[in-house]
């Protein structure tokens, strides 16, 4: 059945999130052109993660949904992380 319903998110919030996403895109391009070596890989992944989180929380409404949705997502990402970790352990220590 319908759980508690959140009121419509204000359109201004969406606009701000969109501007933040565009700004972060510009930032990640700027950082990449500075050649920080291995750090630029980390920076690109961190910025992409922030952007993805913004989309998930605001555009995909996870912030306003039941907590269960966030737990399910984290469980999925945890599973993916375990698979990646184990694969890397195998590849690097072989």
């Amino acid at each position: 059945m319908n759980a508690e319903k959140h009121p419509p998110v204000s359109l201004g919030t969406y606009l701000m999130v969109w501007l933040a996403l565009l700004a972060l895109t510009a930032l990640t391009i700027a950082v990449a052109s500075m050649h920080f070596g291995a750090w630029s890989v980390l920076a690109a992944i961190v910025i992409a993660t922030i952007k993805g989180t913004l989309v998930l929380l605001y555009f995909m409404h996870l912030r306003y949904e039941d907590r269960m949705f966030r737990i399910m997502l984290l469980l999925t990402l945890f599973t993916l992380a375990v698979i990646m970790l184990l694969t890397f352990v195998d590849v690097l220590l072989r």
Binding site: T25, T28, I29, A32, S40, V41, A44, I45, I47, A48, K51, G52, V55, L56, F59, M60, H61
Partner: peptide, 25 residues
């Protein structure tokens, strides 16, 4: 809303594809 969730997920995936292929060098 469900259609929107799908569209946004496709966006999230591109958010990771873009730096990995075009930027990291």
């Amino acid at each position: 809303e469900n259609a929107g969730l799908y569209w946004h997920l496709v966006d999230v995936i591109w958010i990771f594809l873009f730096p990995l292929f075009y930027l990291i060098s």
